[in-house]
Design a protein around this nucleic acid. Structure first.
Lengths: 204, 204, 204, 204
DNA sequence: TATGAATGAGATTTCATTCAT
DNA sequence: CATGAATGAAATCTCATTCAT
């Protein structure tokens, strides 16, 4: 409750950094800009982060953590896999296309080659974690006889691919004139498309 | 007969540029490097391209052109839509993950915000074109009664999302330790996942 | 009391800039040289002046301000116009041919086409102001019956032309072997030449 | 009569060079521009002129020659000095402010420090020659009793200063908004101003 | 802790000049 | 003679990073 002002300082910087990196990319961002946006002197930045790269990594790390689904039920019980999967797709789609998150994939993809640490981090914390969840859901559906037996790993890719495309669309193509899409609607349609491929044909 | 050297000059530069931009990204690439890679002086570069950005755009434009499916049959005749779609997914997946192409999406996504022209170009020439083709295939399947009636546009996104993920995977995550995937195999699985959602339930 | 160092920085640079621009002209001056002459790094220059041109303009502006006659009596009273004019010519001649000023006209004339702002500034602040003063003096003489009625504007040109020629002579021709002239003597002779054309013939 | 085409080539270049140097000054002029303006390749320029500086000097030299009063009567006979002086001032003023000549003083003054050869040339061929002529006229007037006895050299400076100011005015200040002056009218007024200073007071 | 001032090490871009054809 | 193509050698400007205060 009485958290001192220090952690706020750091948070302010990260917030400002997010905005500037978001708007300009890594190379295009100047420490000057971040400092000004955070209302600090450039030198003060360096008291908190030892380099531009460190700042960038800290900021992305923070965002990634915030993006991960906090709680996934340990046991799915009797909930139909279709329902769980729908919810998951909805959840991820909305989260990943939220204005303050959408640039994470862009940054990871765009700067991944220059920041292998970041790509590794993202891969192991987001992709792998997300795929594990999806895989569990798929297996759950297979065990319940809802889903036909497919390679769960491959299925994951189809599922995640659609979610990712939504984020890219919003971030990369909408600003240059692509027709805007409604994240929730797209998620629903994506779930439909995916589900009817996974469900046994006898279902219905 | 005796003038094939001239047009080569430009192509040499573009080739070298592709390699360097591929390895280092836009900001990380120095004109010096491109020049050296092309076996020319820096100044000679500027004889052909008026700026780093112009060079970059020319190179990406060239690659994009090369990546587009040259010829799609105007009329699908009686070929089953499932076959056509499978082929298309295969074709695009292989093309987009080929070592000399795979970085195009990365670059578009990563630098799109800094080069709106590029994003626009990519959107209208690749994405839109690709989606139109997929849409035609889907409609073809619906007319033939192969595919259940779904929103073709949304279906496109699921299809293309999976293809794109393949390229990103190879480019961004494999270099940092993600388990390598076989493009052809993934394409086949993606087609499966997608197809069984599109086919009418009566097909059994 | 303890902050006289700050305003010095800018002045140091301007002083150094004056010397280098004086010796080498605008195009011939490298920011490196100015920096070295000011005992600073090149980057420090850009902290104060956003471009070479800005530095140049600031420096010339400063010099011009310094060159202008600070105070001209608002009312000439009963002082003979001939005396006033003589003094003015002396004053301007000495000022304009002083070693640290003499290059101003050269620069304005030489680079005026490339820096219209500078030419405009010089025209409105120096030429126009100077001509206004001369005009007032001439009218004063006419009112007093000292000077015959001539077109004061045209007379100004003859007067100023001679003063300007002195500066040009010192700067452009003396360095290549023209016989050196004494600024004060030339000013006196010029005043003579001019005065006896303005004075009424009855004065004798 | 049957002068071959060769001298034309050279003349074309000099003409083009004059225009470009006129518009952009020495440093601002690129050999490319001159070549294009002359309708030649850059390399062809170098067949005629060994360097940019050589080209510049040749061009200025040519102009200066063209500017000099071709013929001054060896003996003034009984023509009144006032008339001769008036004519001379008119002649020089018109010549020096002609659009294709006016930039010569600007260039000499502006680039003189960087091209001492040029300044020397101009000084000895134009200034000195002009001053000699004026001096002869003044002495002629003194011998005839028209002019009072003044220092002829100093008088020359007043005379030439006014002429020079006209050229500078047209070239440097008119383009930035100074009120345009009529060369002939200014010359006449200048002659008046000067003459009435030189003539004996008894002349009436 | 905070900052204003400073800088080293480039980066892009330009241009006079050359040379093979 | 003429040229298209090439280049070496700068010059301006930028920016992450440091340091005295």
């Amino acid at each position: 409750m009485a958290r001192p002002t220090v952690p706020t300082r750091r948070a302010d910087i990260l917030l400002a950094a997010r905005d500037v990196f978001n708007a300009r990319g890594f190379a295009g961002t100047r420490m000057d800009d971040v400092a000004r946006a955070a209302g600090l002197s450039k030198a003060a930045l360096y008291l908190q982060f030892s380099s531009k790269q460190a700042l960038f990594e800290a900021m992305v790390g923070e965002l990634i953590e915030a993006m991960l689904p906090r709680a996934i039920p340990a046991d799915f019980g009797a909930t139909p896999a279709a329902v769980i999967l729908r919810n998951f797709i909805q959840f991820m789609s909305l989260r990943i296309t939220a204005p303050d998150m959408a640039f994470v994939p862009r940054v990871i993809i765009g700067e991944g080659a220059n920041f292998p640490e970041l790509a590794r981090f993202y891969h192991s914390h987001v992709i792998t974690r997300g795929m594990t969840i999806v895989e569990r859901i798929v297996r759950h559906g297979m065990e319940r006889g809802e889903f036909c037996s497919a390679d769960p790993i491959q299925a994951c890719r189809t599922i995640i691919g659609g979610v990712l495309l939504g984020a890219i669309w919003k971030n990369t193509f909408e600003p240059v004139g692509a027709e805007p899409i409604d994240a929730a609607a797209m998620a629903a349609a994506h779930a439909d498309a995916v589900l009817f491929g996974l469900m046994t044909r006898s279902a219905s």
